[in-house]
């Protein structure tokens, strides 16, 4: 019996650890809403579809030059060699360009999904990938509502590729390459809060030119990359059915149940085991 007890105590120990773990989960999910994140504002009314952003992005990150040009009816996608693409859409207000890349969510599903924190929401705002931690499970890809992390399927040492908002440049006080080089000033870099103010100002000043909605202000609990456009966003290939609350919150219910189960179930099982011990003896007697 002494061994049983020791095992039981060990079980409780693990339960304790899980409890602590449960708490830090809460912290990592809710933290961040009060921190001033950097972000980018993209104005589709200004974009001329010149692909400068695509070109400088490839250059800065040592990736192959972009393939193809924005054409109506053709939806190009970011992939493991291209972190950003510009597409053209036929809309109710004429042909419009839209740039696509990682949205740098305030509460990123990819980072909550990552079991090694290789996907990481930095305190500056960019969501980055850290190769020394990543095991290549691709759970970030399953979880991302925008399907932005891309995987090198044809490499024995594969990386996850996606826009990092040029985190290295931001740390040195610089701007993301696309924002710095955009000739049409369609991409503005700054504190997310200021960008939303700026976007609202533009809507107020030219209400006919802009849709009331700022895509990314609320989607998935808010994104770092936010959009302005003259038309409803479903005309521009955006998923307008995404929930406005955080995606990590979807698995919170399950994660919260873990400490309770760990604390409650083992003692109950031990209790039932002790209570039914007689069955064993009775059955033994019958057999004899």
């Amino acid at each position: 019996m002494s061994l049983d007890r020791r095992n039981f105590i060990k079980t409780l120990g693990v339960a304790g650890v899980t409890l602590a773990v449960g708490k830090s989960t809460v912290a990592s999910v809710t933290k961040g809403t009060n921190i001033e994140f950097y972000g980018m504002l993209y104005d589709s009314t200004r974009c001329v579809g010149c692909q400068t952003c695509e070109n400088v992005c490839a250059e800065v990150h040592g990736l192959p030059a972009p393939e193809g040009t924005p054409k109506v009816g053709v939806v190009r996608k970011t992939d493991e060699k291209h972190r950003t693409v510009v597409n053209s859409y036929k809309t109710s207000k004429g042909d419009l360009f839209v740039k696509k890349q990682c949205m740098h969510c305030n509460e990123p599903a990819c980072a909550a999904a990552c079991l090694t924190q290789a996907m990481h929401k930095t305190k500056e705002g960019p969501v980055i990938w850290r190769g020394n931690k990543c095991m290549g499970c691709r759970y970030c890809m399953v979880s991302c509502p925008f399907d932005m992390p891309k995987f090198e399927y044809h490499s024995p040492n594969p990386k996850i590729e996606k826009c990092t908002m040029c985190y290295e440049r931001i740390k040195e006080g610089g701007k993301p390459a696309c924002a710095e080089n955009c000739p049409a000033e369609a991409i503005t870099f700054g504190k997310r809060r200021d960008l939303i103010k700026e976007a609202r100002k533009r809507i107020c000043e030219k209400p006919d030119q802009y849709s009331d909605q700022i895509y990314g202000e609320r989607e998935t609990g808010g994104t770092g990359f936010i959009y302005q456009a003259p038309v409803p966003y479903n005309e521009l290939g955006f998923n307008t059915h995404l929930q406005n609350s955080s995606y990590p919150a979807l698995s919170k219910g399950f994660l919260y149940s873990v400490p309770s189960i760990f604390v409650l179930v083992p003692p109950i099982l031990l209790g039932i085991h002790e209570a039914t011990k007689d069955n064993h003896i009775k059955e033994g007697e019958e057999n004899e």
């Binding site: 773990v21 830090s24 989960t25 990592s28 999910v29 980072a111 909550a112 999904a113 990552c114 079991l115 090694t116 924190q117 020394n132 931690k133 499970c137 759970y139 990590p248 698995s251 399950f254 994660l255 873990v258």
Partner: peptide
């Protein structure tokens, strides 16, 4: 390296 405790896959 690191404990990704907010991940279901970690559990």
């Amino acid at each position: 390296n690191n404990f990704g405790t907010s991940s279901v896959l970690f559990l």
